[in-house]
Design a protein around this nucleic acid. Structure first.
Length: 412
RNA sequence: GCGCAGGUGGCAGAGCGGUCAAUUGCAAUAGACUGUAAAUCUAUCGCCCUAUGGGCUACGGGGGUUCAAAUCCCUCCCUGCGCA
C-alpha cells in the first residue's frame, strides 16, 4: 500500500501537527486545503489554473459522477486523474453528504452549518409525510434510495455500491458511505443513525479491503454523532477499532478518518476536539466540508490535517471575494470604479492583473471570466491561508499568525 | 397629406371602467451561500409619513363622460409601418 502519513512536527499543548500524506499521485503537505471539483472539474478552472494557484488535491463526488457521466464510463476513460488531466492527489466523497442535502435538508433552510440560534421550526420533527416523500433521498437500513436531481430516475446506494463507484473513479483517497445527519435531530435519532453509519463503515472497509484497489486507494472512515459528546467519541473509537482482512491477508483498518456532520457553528470546535482526542495520532484526519478562514484556524488547532469546502468557488461565482479584512461582494456599487486589486497585496493571478472595477464589470455582465478570475482569487486566498498556517506551525508562531489574521478579518 | 398600429414605472412589455402604485421579465440596490440540487437563491425597487397602516403624485399633453378612468370620448403632440 503506497499510502502513508508522516508527521513532521507536533505542536506542544495542542492537537495541531504538520505532516505529509503520501499518495500514488504525490504528497499532500498538511495542514492542507483540498479543492472541490464535484463533477470532476473545479468549476470554471482548468487544471493548470488549479495547480498554479497552489492547490495540491482535488475532491470529486461519487453521487454526481455516478449519475453523469457514470463511474464505469470514467473507468473506461482511464479514471479520474486521466480524464481530469490532474496529475496530483485526488479524493472522492462517498455520496454521504447527499444523503443529507437531498434527504433531511431537502427544501429546508439548513445546510452544512446552521446559524447560532437557528429558527425554531427547524427543530421540529418531520411532520408532513408528503414532504418526506418528495425528498430525493430516502434512508433505509441497508442503504439510501435516491432520485436523480438531473432526470428524476431512481437509484440505490449501499456502502458496497459507493465503494465500487469510488474504485471505478480511482481517487487516491476515498471515503466510507455515511449518513450526515441534521444537527436538529434528537439524540435518539442520532444514536440510531450513528449505529447505521458504523455498520455501513464496516461494510465499506471490508468491501474495500477485499479488492485489489485497496493497494492503490486509501479509505477514510467518517465520524458522525451530531452534537453529542458521547456519540462523537464513541464514533471515533468504533471506527478506530474496525478492522478487516485485505487481499494479501493483512488485517487493516481505515487509512484515515474524516469528520462529518452538519454543525451549529458554535458546536463545531468542541465536536472536532472530542473526536480528534480519540483518533490515533498517526492517521490523517479530514474535516469534511469546512473552509471559512476562522474555521480553518480552528480545525488545524483542533488537530485536523485536511479540509475541503465549496465556499471559495461557490461564493466566487456569486461575486463574493475573500480579502484580508473580510469578504466583499465585488458587484457592489462601491467597487464599480475601484482601480485597486481585489485584495491589496494578494499575489494571485487575478489580483496581479486585474482591477476590482474590471472584475465587478465581469460579474455585472455575467461573463464567464468572472467565475474564473474570482475562483482563482478565492482559492488562492484559502489554499495559501492554510499554507501560511502550516508555515506558522513549523516556525512556531501559529498563535501570533492566527491572532493577527483574525484581528483584521471581519466576519459578520 | 391620407390610412393603419401604437404611446404604461430605468428598459421591454401586461393590463383595457372599480379588487391598480399597476402582472411579468430584465436592469438596479442589498443580502445569503461551509463533504456543490448552486454561473444559484432571497429581499427591496414612485414620493412622503406618527409605517403589517395612512397620505400624495402617477399610465404622452390638455379637456370631457362617470359615483369611479391606465382603461370610454374629443383634441393636440410624438413614434412605427403602408400609400401618396
Amino acid at each position: 500500500m503506497s499510502f502513508k502519513f508522516e508527521i513532521k512536527k507536533k505542536i506542544e499543548g495542542s492537537l495541531a501537527r504538520v505532516g505529509e500524506i503520501h499518495t500514488p499521485h504525490g504528497i499532500i503537505h498538511t495542514p492542507a486545503f483540498v479543492i472541490v471539483g464535484t463533477k470532476a472539474t473545479v468549476k470554471s478552472l482548468t487544471p493548470e489554473q488549479v495547480k498554479e494557484l497552489g492547490a495540491e488535491t482535488v475532491l470529486a463526488n461519487t453521487y454526481h459522477l455516478y449519475l453523469e457521466p457514470g463511474d464505469e464510463r470514467i473507468a473506461r476513460m482511464g479514471g479520474l486523474h486521466k480524464v481530469m488531466n490532474w496529475q496530483g492527489p485526488t479524493m472522492t466523497d462517498s455520496g454521504g453528504f447527499q444523503v443529507f442535502s437531498l434527504g433531511a435538508a431537502y427544501g429546508k433552510n439548513i445546510s452544512k452549518l446552521t446559524k447560532a440560534g437557528a429558527e425554531p421550526e427547524l427543530l421540529l420533527p418531520e411532520v408532513s409525510e408528503e414532504l418526506a416523500k418528495a425528498k430525493p433521498a430516502q434512508i433505509s437500513e441497508e442503504g439510501v434510495s435516491f432520485r436523480s436531481h438531473i432526470d428524476g430516475s431512481s437509484h440505490y446506494f449501499t456502502p458496497k455500491k459507493s465503494i465500487d463507484i469510488q474504485h471505478n473513479l480511482g481517487a487516491d483517497i476515498i471515503v466510507a458511505f455515511d449518513e450526515c445527519t441534521s444537527p436538529n435531530e434528537p439524540f435518539a435519532y442520532q444514536r440510531q443513525a450513528l449505529d447505521r453509519t458504523h455498520r455501513w463503515a464496516k461494510a465499506c472497509l471490508a468491501h474495500h479491503l477485499s479488492s485489489p484497489q485497496s493497494e492503490l486507494q486509501a479509505l477514510y472512515g467518517v465520524v458522525q454523532g451530531g452534537r453529542f459528546e458521547d456519540l462523537r467519541k464513541e464514533s471515533a473509537q468504533a471506527l478506530v477499532e474496525m478492522k478487516a482482512e485485505d487481499v494479501k491477508g493483512n488485517v487493516r483498518g481505515f487509512d484515515g478518518y474524516a469528520i462529518g456532520g452538519s454543525f451549529a457553528k458554535e458546536d463545531m470546535a468542541t465536536a472536532v476536539a472530542w473526536v480528534n482526542g480519540e483518533l490515533p495520532e498517526d492517521k490523517p484526519r479530514h474535516l469534511l466540508g469546512i473552509g471559512e478562514p476562522e474555521d480553518l484556524f480552528m480545525g488545524v488547532e483542533q488537530g485536523c490535517d485536511t479540509f475541503d469546502c465549496v465556499a471559495p468557488t461557490r461564493i466566487a461565482r456569486n461575486g463574493q471575494h475573500y480579502t484580508k479584512t473580510g469578504k466583499i461582494n465585488i458587484r457592489n456599487l462601491e467597487f464599480r470604479d475601484d482601480l485597486g486589486p481585489v485584495d491589496e497585496g494578494c499575489e494571485c493571478y487575478t489580483c496581479k492583473h486585474y482591477t476590482r472595477a474590471y472584475v465587478s464589470h465581469l460579474h455585472r455582465s455575467d461573463e464567464m471570466l468572472a467565475a474564473t478570475l474570482s475562483s482563482i482569487h478565492n482559492l488562492y486566498f484559502i489554499v495559501n491561508l492554510v499554507k501560511h498556517i502550516r508555515q506558522s506551525l513549523i516556525e512556531g508562531n501559529f498563535q501570533e499568525f492566527k491572532t493577527e489574521f483574525l484581528s483584521k478579518y471581519k466576519t459578520k
